[in-house]
C-alpha cells in the first residue's frame, strides 16, 4: 500500500491547491465551517504541508475533513494562492479510497450521499430530481414545495417544463442512451471504483457495528438509519 502522503501527491489537485502556507489564518477567517464547527482550515493545510504520515492518517479518519462546505471562500483570499477547499477534496478522496472515512461519523455519511445524489445521477441524469426531494426528508422546503411535490405533473407542465418526458426542456427525461453514456463514463473514469470502495467499507462498518441480518450479512437499511441518527461526539 502506498503511503497516504504519496496518494495525496498523486492527485493533480494537490499541486493546484497547495503552494505553501504561511499560517496567516485568512482562510479560517472567512470560512463558514470554521464559524460553525471546531474547524480550522489553516491547520489542515499545515498538516498536509508537514508531509507527516501519522498526522495525515489522523486527518483521514477524522470528522474534521468532512466539515468543509466547499464554498471555496478560502481560495479567493489566500495570499499564497493556496486553496484549502481543494486540498480537502484530495483528503476526502484518499479517505474514501483507503476506507478511513468509515472511522468518523461525518465520513460515514458518504454512504448516504452516494445512495441519494449518486443514485440520482445515474438514474435521472440529474443530481437532484423533484421526486427525490420528498416531503418527509425535507420539512424545511415548506408548504409551497409540498404543493409542488404533490402536484408536480401539473405544476411543471404549467411552467412549460417537460418533467420526465422526452425531448428538450426543463426536467426532461434524459434519454436512455445519454444515461448509458453517463454510466459508461463512470465506469471508465473511476467513479465506479470509488462507489465500490464506499460500499465495501460501509458494509464492513455495518458488520462491525452489528447491523446485520439473521445470516450475518450487513443490513444497509439499519446502517442508513444508524447514520441518520448518529449523535455528534463533539
Amino acid at each position: 500500500m502506498k503511503m497516504v502522503v504519496q496518494q495525496l501527491a498523486d492527485d493533480v489537485r494537490l499541486k493546484e491547491g497547495m503552494n505553501a502556507c504561511m499560517n496567516c489564518g485568512i482562510c479560517t477567517a472567512v470560512c463558514p465551517a470554521a464559524e460553525y464547527f471546531e474547524y480550522d482550515p489553516r491547520s489542515i493545510v499545515v498538516a498536509v504541508q508537514s508531509g507527516n504520515e501519522e498526522k495525515i492518517q489522523q486527518l483521514l479518519t477524522s470528522d474534521t475533513i468532512w466539515m468543509c462546505g466547499q464554498c471555496m471562500s478560502c481560495k479567493t483570499r489566500c495570499p499564497r494562492s493556496n486553496c484549502p477547499g481543494i486540498i480537502i477534496n484530495v483528503l476526502r478522496k484518499v479517505s474514501q479510497a483507503t476506507g478511513a472515512f468509515v472511522q468518523s461519523r461525518l465520513g460515514r455519511q458518504q454512504y448516504l450521499i452516494m445512495k441519494t445524489i449518486g443514485a440520482n445521477l445515474l438514474r435521472y441524469g440529474y443530481c437532484i430530481h423533484p421526486s427525490a426531494v420528498d416531503i418527509q426528508n425535507h420539512p424545511e422546503q415548506g408548504p409551497v414545495w409540498e404543493w409542488v411535490y404533490s402536484n408536480r405533473e401539473e405544476v411543471y407542465e404549467r411552467l412549460g417544463a417537460n418533467l420526465d418526458r422526452e425531448g428538450p426542456g426543463a426536467m426532461r427525461k434524459i434519454a436512455t442512451n445519454d444515461l448509458l453514456e453517463l454510466a459508461v463514463i463512470f465506469e471508465q473514469s473511476g467513479g465506479t471504483v470509488l462507489w465500490q470502495s464506499i460500499e465495501t467499507h460501509s458494509k464492513n462498518k455495518a458488520i462491525e457495528l452489528g447491523l446485520v441480518d439473521s445470516q450475518g450479512n450487513p443490513c444497509m437499511d439499519l446502517y442508513t438509519n444508524y447514520l441518520l441518527n448518529e449523535d455528534p461526539e463533539f
Partner: peptide, 17 residues
C-alpha cells in the same frame, strides 16, 4: 446531462469522472 458538480463537491464523483 448534469455536470455532476453536486456529486463532485460532495466527493462521490472523482475529479477524473
Amino acid at each position: 446531462t448534469t455536470c455532476s458538480g453536486i456529486g463532485y463537491h460532495t466527493d462521490i464523483v472523482p475529479f477524473d469522472t
